[in-house]
């Protein structure tokens, strides 16, 4: 196996928490604050890993399994994603299905861990999570189906290799629609504004944050790290399609990819600074809109 294939997992493992730092820095800059250091997420993780733990008396092994499943699922997903032209560590035709479903597994266990506490807050968050993800799933897979049609490939590696400046000039509208749909899925799945507010402090209004209220110490470090990895992986999927830097040189591709990820973090920060979160009842409409965008893209590439 050639070393470049390790690029995506290594980049993700090392730099996933950095992405959060950039987003927060952008938000602080727009808001006129100094904001936390860019490396804050790393300090948080180090602090949490040094702590003990407190478990609720209601909980069972399910509660302790949740954070581990979250991290492992995201790690497996990093092995399925390529960087530019460089193939993925473990890519194969149909790997995008595995990618979608390992995140499904992680969600299933996060939700069960939340229900294990018997807390009504966490039950509420779990209920919202399954509702929104059930609607985001078709948008994600239909968007990838449009890319599959356009590039004639069913593996993420093949799809990313098929995306190029040329593909954007010939099928630009379809790819733009796919990118928009994926951006919405990315924001929803990672609990960002306008679907969920990661900075909120009221249990009643949270989605992702409220599900992990009872986790502490190393468990919470796993939760945070798993969330950062998920942000990275879904972001990398979007950047792979929206940023067509394919030079054949792994270094230039990686540089283009890194620039794309940074730009995505800035976009997320800008979105979070410029708008409030949607009413919970409006979120399904947003996600149905994402699925509709994917379907439109499919119609464009089908002809």
């Amino acid at each position: 196996m050639e070393a470049p294939r390790l690029a995506q997992p290594v980049l993700a493992i090392l730099f996933a928490p950095l992405l959060l730092g950039v987003v927060n820095r952008v938000k602080a800059w727009v808001g006129g604050r100094r904001g936390p250091p860019v490396l804050q997420a790393y300090w948080d993780l180090a602090k949490l890993l040094r702590k003990g733990a407190v478990y609720s008396r209601s909980t069972t092994w399910i509660f302790r399994a949740g954070p581990i499943v979250g991290v492992c699922a995201a790690l497996v997903a990093t092995a399925l994603l390529p960087v530019g032209d460089t193939p993925a560590l473990m890519g194969f035709p149909g790997d995008l299905i595995l990618l979608a479903y390992v995140f499904g597994l992680a969600r299933f266990f996060t939700v069960l861990a939340a229900l294990d506490t018997g807390s009504s807050f966490e039950g509420m968050g779990a209920s919202r999570e399954v509702q929104f993800s059930a609607l985001a799933e078709p948008a994600l897979l239909l968007a990838l189906a449009a890319v599959a049609r356009n590039t004639g490939s069913t593996s993420l590696t093949g799809m990313m290799q098929g995306i190029s400046v040329h593909a954007w000039t010939t099928a630009g509208p379809a790819l733009a629609l796919v990118s928009a749909a994926l951006l919405l899925v990315f924001l929803a799945e990672n609990a960002r504004i306008p679907v969920d507010d990661p900075a909120t402090h009221l249990e009643l209004t949270m989605i992702h944050e409220v599900m992990v209220l009872d986790h502490g110490g190393p468990d919470f470090a796993f939760v945070l790290y798993g969330a950062a990895l998920k942000l990275w992986v879904l972001g990398a999927l979007l950047v792979g399609i929206a940023v067509p830097v394919r030079s054949g040189d792994p270094w230039i591709d990686a540089a283009g990819f890194a620039a794309g990820m940074l730009a995505l973090a800035v976009v997320v920060g800008a979105v979070e600074s410029s708008m409030a979160r949607l009413k919970l009842l409006r979120v399904p409409q947003l996600l149905a809109g994402a699925a509709a965008l994917s379907a439109l893209a499919l119609i464009l590439v089908l002809r």
Binding site: L49, K51, G52, A53, V54, Y55, S56, R57, S58, T59, T117, G118, S119, F121, L213, D214, G217, P218
Partner: peptide, 13 residues
């Protein structure tokens, strides 16, 4: 990591 550290039990938050 948790070996030797304090692992407590409490009511759900």
């Amino acid at each position: 990591l948790l070996a030797g550290r304090r692992v407590g039990a409490a009511a759900t938050w």
